[in-house]
C-alpha cells in the first residue's frame, strides 16, 4: 500500500510533465554577438508589429516568423502580442496594401530560424525551448 502511494506521488507529476511537454515554452533568440542580454515582452511585441525597427545601438532589426497556421506562431502571438493570428493578418493587410510596412520574414521552422539568426547579427526569432543550442543566444523565455 505504501509502495502504491509512493508510486502515485512519483507517477502523477510525471504524467503532468508528460502533458505539459507539448508546450515546453518558447524562447527568443538573437545572434551570439548581439550586445542585447534580455528583451521585454513589450519591446518584442512592438518589434513583431513593426512599431520598433531598431536595436538600442541603432542597427536595424530583422524579425523572423514561423509559417502561417503553425502552432508555434499561434502560441507566440497569443502570449506576446495578445492577438489571434487572424487579428494579426488583418493588422498586416492594412500596412502591406498601403505600402507602409513589411511583415517579418517567414522561415520554415526552428532549424531555419537558428541558421539565419546565427548568420545575421540583426536577426531575432522565436523557437521552441527544445531547439536551443549554442549557435544562438536566448534573451527571453516565454512561459
Amino acid at each position: 500500500m505504501k509502495k502504491f502511494i509512493v508510486s502515485i506521488f512519483i507517477i502523477f507529476p510525471l504524467l503532468f510533465l508528460g502533458s505539459a511537454s507539448s508546450y515546453a515554452g518558447l524562447v527568443v533568440v538573437v545572434h551570439p554577438a548581439n550586445s542585447m542580454q534580455a528583451i521585454s515582452k513589450e519591446d518584442l511585441k512592438r518589434i513583431y508589429l513593426s512599431k520598433k525597427k531598431e536595436f538600442s545601438d541603432g542597427s536595424l532589426i530583422s524579425p523572423l516568423d514561423h509559417p502561417k497556421d503553425s502552432e508555434t506562431k499561434k502560441t507566440f502571438y497569443k502570449k506576446v502580442v495578445g492577438k489571434s493570428l487572424s487579428q494579426v493578418s488583418s493588422y498586416w493587410s492594412r500596412l502591406i496594401f498601403t505600402g507602409k510596412g513589411i511583415p517579418p520574414r517567414v522561415m520554415r521552422g526552428d532549424e531555419e530560424i537558428k541558421v539565419w539568426v546565427a548568420g545575421h547579427p540583426e536577426g531575432i526569432g522565436y523557437i521552441n525551448k527544445k531547439s536551443i543550442d549554442d549557435s544562438v543566444k536566448v534573451i527571453l523565455t516565454i512561459k
Binding site: 525597427k53 531598431e54 536595424l60 493578418s89 488583418s90 493587410s93 492594412r94 496594401f97 498601403t98 505600402g99
Partner: peptide
C-alpha cells in the same frame, strides 16, 4: 528606418480607412 519618402501614384489618406478602402479583410 523612421523616414520614408514615396513618389509616384499614391492614395489620398482622407479618412482612416481611405488608403485600404478596397481591402475588406482589413476592417
Amino acid at each position: 528606418s523612421d523616414l520614408s519618402i514615396r513618389a509616384g501614384r499614391l492614395v489620398l489618406p482622407v479618412m482612416m480607412v481611405s488608403e485600404f478602402v478596397d481591402v475588406g479583410y482589413a476592417y
